[in-house]
């Protein structure tokens, strides 16, 4: 028997929207939700339009080639590696590098270019195949 004890108070708008009013398990959706629906449609249309317009306008703006200052300076100075990776790192200059910077992580580590090793010095061995 329904006592009414668990029912929401009359005029409980939130309970009505949740569908708890009257103990009926079927949710009730008041017709004025259509008004929210139209607002939602307007918001969705505005978001879509703003996103598409932003990207399209920027693409159109950059479609025509413009003078590239980085390229002009790159050519004028005569550089051959872009400045995207910090200078002094091996990744910046993959080839042999004229450097005055010690690239070791620790000063106790051996230098990167130790020079010719004594064992490979041709003056010490008369033939590469000769072994002591």
């Amino acid at each position: 028997m329904t006592t009414g004890k668990n029912l929401p108070a009359k005029g409980d708008r939130r309970a009505e929207l949740r569908g708890d009013a009257g103990g009926d398990p079927t949710p009730h959706y008041p017709p004025d939700f259509l008004r929210f629906g139209s607002w939602l449609l307007v918001a969705i249309t505005a978001i879509l339009t703003a996103c598409i317009l932003t990207v399209v306008l920027d693409e159109v703006r950059t479609f025509t080639p413009k003078p590239d200052p980085a390229g002009m300076f790159y050519r004028a100075i005569g550089l051959s590696e872009p400045a995207l990776i910090p200078a002094g790192r091996h990744e910046r200059q993959p080839h042999f590098l004229p450097t005055a910077v010690d690239g070791r992580y620790l000063p106790l580590l051996p230098r990167e270019t130790p020079g010719g090793l004594p064992l490979l010095d041709a003056g010490q061995l008369s033939s590469p195949r000769e072994t002591p």
Binding site: P69, A70, G71, M72, F73, Y74, I77, L79, P82, A83, L84, P86, A87
Partner: peptide, 15 residues
Amino acid sequence: RFPSRSDMATHEVVL
């Protein structure tokens, strides 16, 4: 100083 728009080439270059 080099202009900021040329940073990709000249960011830490000293002429």
